[in-house]
Write a protein that binds this DNA or RNA. Structure first.
Length: 516
DNA sequence: CGCTTTTGACCGGCGC
DNA sequence: GCGCCGGTCAAAAGCG
């Protein structure tokens, strides 16, 4: 689980573009001496990637051949490994040219071999360190975002309680907060509580789950606030499940359901131009319904994430009535399973947008901006429009990627009943195939506080760049086929645990892309 | 055969 | 109470 992630990082290097049959010859014999020579070949990028992930290179193919990738600047390992290999190759050349110095050359070869081994070990250590740092960093990010969300939820919860005179929900103790207990995403994960339900494969039960539970716990007040008696009949957890459980479990179950409701109440929606019926977002989806929505001649399709049993993430796909080239994809909920890099982008986007949405619609933007001050950084992404709307049954944030890149005018209306827009720095995948994210795109002239809020929310995820790159790649390589779901090319050959992917329970992302 | 898609039915929320 | 609408279910069909 560690190495695929590393592979992901490396794969987002700037070499992986224009590799038309790359996947085919990528799975050749790795680890032998020959690959060292290949560092000078045109397929260096493949070998670099393979050198960092020698085992099952073909199992990991986040980007199809020819798929442009984004240079996320994570070249440390790649260059390191490459540099460590280079002397050996040169030495081989030298040794092959002069037989008279065979003895000295052989000794040199031995020394270089030892050096190579040493560098290899060092390289591995560095990789491990990088992984560890990344993990810790993302974990911290997650915790911070969770704390922010909890703060927002508490504030609004207390506000509502004051208004309604309702007893406030049981306050979350630290134990509860840390306890991976009933949450919207974990109702089907915990075998101890849901023994009859599908059991999540243990590899999937990683820290992400814990992190998600962490976050989802934090969102409970919001849940109870919003929907004290609501129910989700369509979820894997049926009321009968509750009935069969002990009262305590049933109570937990209700908490789960309400939490899940909260998860699904906030929506993040993205509009983008796309010919494809559905964007490829890195997840596997199963269509479970289609309806004709009022006011739109185009049907609305309902999809459910099938990457893991019990995953409550759903999405709606519908074309814009005004402009049928615009595809509107709406995501709800959080994945309770590791995500491939391509899907990570979606999850991160969802998280950031949902975080912004919650923070902006609950307490104030400060709940987000202040805690994330440390994350303020130039947002190296083109901008687009993010629209927050509380007029809908669910708070919804819409990321409009159909706008041309560049500064976007923004509006923010605090009135909950009216939509308000704010600039959400986003990358314009349709405009920049396989290029480095333009650094330093600023939106200073636009309400900095709001911009910072969104910026911080999105940029706070250290995996955002890599995940975004994966998303862009997946978007650009979005299959024109009619599915994009089961036949989705982004269906991960191997799940990649990208730690710390903020998958906030209330996230719902509409992701519209432009595959034109 | 298993999985996915299709599609009509069903359910709950909401407004009148 | 009724109808509308969004969302989901589930049986049937399709597909590899």
């Amino acid at each position: 689980m560690e190495r695929p992630r590393r592979m992901d990082l490396l794969h987002s290097g700037d070499y992986s573009g224009n590799d038309p049959g790359g996947a085919g010859d990528r799975g050749g014999a790795r680890g032998d001496v020959i690959q060292e020579v290949d560092f000078f070949s045109k397929s260096r990028q493949r070998d670099e990637a393979a050198s960092c992930l020698p085992e099952n290179p073909e199992k990991y193919s986040p980007s199809p051949p020819g798929e442009p990738s984004i240079n996320m600047g994570l070249h440390l390992l790649t260059m390191n490994s490459g540099g460590s290999q280079q002397p050996a190759v040169e030495e081989k050349k030298n040794s092959g040219c002069s037989n008279s110095n065979s003895n000295s050359n052989s000794s040199k070869l031995v020394a270089l071999q030892a050096e190579l081994d040493r560098l290899g070990d060092e390289n591995r250590k560095l990789r491990s360190m990088l992984d560890h740092l990344m993990k810790n960093y993302t974990d911290l990010q997650n915790q911070l975002l969770l704390a922010m969300q909890q703060q927002a939820c508490k504030a609004e919860d207390s506000q509502k309680d004051n208004m309604n005179g309702m007893p406030s929900p049981v306050p979350l103790t630290a134990q509860q907060f840390m306890d991976p207990g009933p949450t919207c995403m974990q109702d089907t994960e915990d075998p101890s509580k849901s023994g009859e339900e599908e059991e999540e494969p243990s590899p999937l039960r990683n820290h992400l789950d814990h992190a998600s539970s962490f976050k989802e716990q934090a969102i409970v007040p919001l849940t109870k606030r919003r929907l004290p008696t609501d129910n989700i009949p369509s979820e894997q957890t049926s009321p009968s499940w509750v009935a069969n459980k002990s009262p305590k479990q049933a109570q937990e179950r209700n908490s789960d359901q309400t939490s899940e409701l909260a998860c699904r109440k906030a929506r993040v929606s993205v509009r983008a131009r796309s010919d494809a019926p559905m964007i490829s977002d890195g997840c596997q989806w199963r269509k479970y319904g289609q309806k004709m929505a009022k006011g739109n001649p185009c049907p609305r399709a309902y999809y459910r994430c099938t990457m893991a049993a019990g995953c409550s993430v759903r999405k709606q796909v519908q074309r814009c009535a005004e402009d049928k080239t615009i595809l509107i994809t709406t995501y709800e909920g959080n994945h309770n399973h590791p995500l491939p890099p391509a899907a990570m982008a979606m999850a991160n986007t969802t998280t950031a947008a949902a975080t912004m949405l919650l923070s902006g619609s609950t307490t104030s933007k400060d709940s987000l901006t202040n805690p994330t001050t440390g994350f303020y950084q130039p947002m190296p992404y083109a901008s687009t429009m993010a629209t927050l709307s509380a007029s809908a049954p669910f708070p919804t944030i819409t990321l409009d990627l159909t706008q041309p890149p560049g500064p976007v005018q923004l509006h923010r209306q605090q009135t909950p009943a009216t939509p308000f827009s704010l600039p959400l720095p986003m990358y314009m995948p349709q405009k920049v195939p396989g290029m480095v994210l333009p650094p330093g795109l600023q939106f200073g002239q636009q309400q900095p506080s709001v911009m910072d809020t969104v910026t911080a929310a999105i940029a706070s995820d250290p995996n955002f760049t890599s995940a975004l790159a994966a998303a862009i790649k997946s978007i650009m390589a979005a299959p024109r086929s009619s599915d994009g779901t089961s036949g989705n090319s982004t269906s991960p050959p191997a799940l990649h645990v990208v730690p710390g992917s903020p998958q906030f329970p209330q996230s719902c992302t509409t992701f519209s892309t432009n595959t034109n």
